[in-house]
Nucleic acid binder design. Sequence first.
DNA 1: AGGTTCATGTAACCCGTTACATGATTTC
DNA 2: GAAATCATGTAACGGGTTACATGAACCT
Lengths: 200, 200
Amino acid sequence: MVRTMPRRKAEGAALSLLEGALLGLLHDEPCSGYALRKVFQDTPMFHFSDSPGSIYPALRRLEGRGMLRSTIEAARTLRPRQVYRLTREGTAALEAWLSAPVTRDTVVRGLDGAMLRFAFLDRVLGSEATAGFLAALAREVAAHVAGLERFHASQARALPLTGRLALESGIDGYKARLAWARRAARHFKASRTGPKGEDR
Amino acid sequence: MVRTMPRRKAEGAALSLLEGALLGLLHDEPCSGYALRKVFQDTPMFHFSDSPGSIYPALRRLEGRGMLRSTIEAARTLRPRQVYRLTREGTAALEAWLSAPVTRDTVVRGLDGAMLRFAFLDRVLGSEATAGFLAALAREVAAHVAGLERFHASQARALPLTGRLALESGIDGYKARLAWARRAARHFKASRTGPKGEDR
DNA sequence: AGGTTCATGTAACCCGTTACATGATTTC
DNA sequence: GAAATCATGTAACGGGTTACATGAACCT
């Protein structure tokens, strides 16, 4: 009676943040799992676990899904490195992930995913798409801020002090992101470049 | 760098964010799983999944750990509500979770957990502890901002444009949180109250 | 010779999400 | 009497974290 449907395993094959980050980094340049780990270790921007238990399985999964191909390099040196590179499908998946529309949900679920996508956008999809992304992000963040402020206006006195302050903190954070998005849009337009094609 | 903590090896039984949120809400007032779900649904501050698949199992787990006790309030209406309330151990666990020191890790792992804890702090631990929390948070966030700015200064020109902008966005966000924490500390001191609740 | 870095993995657990499922009660 | 809401659950899955494990190479 339990249907055990194919789950949401549809063709979309949405990427997790970690998977998106891996594909994005590998788009910039092919490298080994260890090198990716290092990036996570000493890059303060996006904190994924730098432990092998997350990266290696994720790489395997992506390879299993046909998005990555790995070749063992440095065969002579007895310290083999397994270097991963994007396949066409991998590139397609990355592009799909990056071009997913910025919706209310993107904002509500926290901006981390949006910022991660942004960090890869121009090199994969070009400046046009990046500008569009920023515009959409600004729009949605502004809408969310408005919503939060409505909530604040109507509920503030019903909330306990710390609850109210915590809410205000959230509003402040989103406002900062909004200001940034607008500034980045200007800043970004200043240096228009075509989509860099480094693949192959 | 700094290794993370031994996690939940011992009886300490660290709480997940969801569990902390549930205990915090139930500390304010006992209620049913459905009511908690509603809170998650229409409170924009902290978005947990409002689906039953997360809340009910979590409540069960907490009950199994002796932190909650549930009573069925069906009475006349033939629609039984299972009302959860904190036990002494639950209160203790909540207090322990809230009094965990604010460390570098607290900040690096994203401020969501910190803000969630803050939202419950004064009603559980009183204003003294809340003030201390804000001070510690400001200290750690300031340190993290400094670290990010060092990284920015040294790496900015090595980063691609969007990468650099994303980093700056992160810095902006933390700065907003820092300003908030300092403001909240003042604001908060303005209305000192003793720890609310039945501890007297 | 011994510690650190390079480099890759496995095993177990936890738990959040999605989807499925049920049935009573209120509301239009 | 249909739709929405109240109210509670289970099954299955994915995947991130922790911890354990191995071994070569490099530096001192």
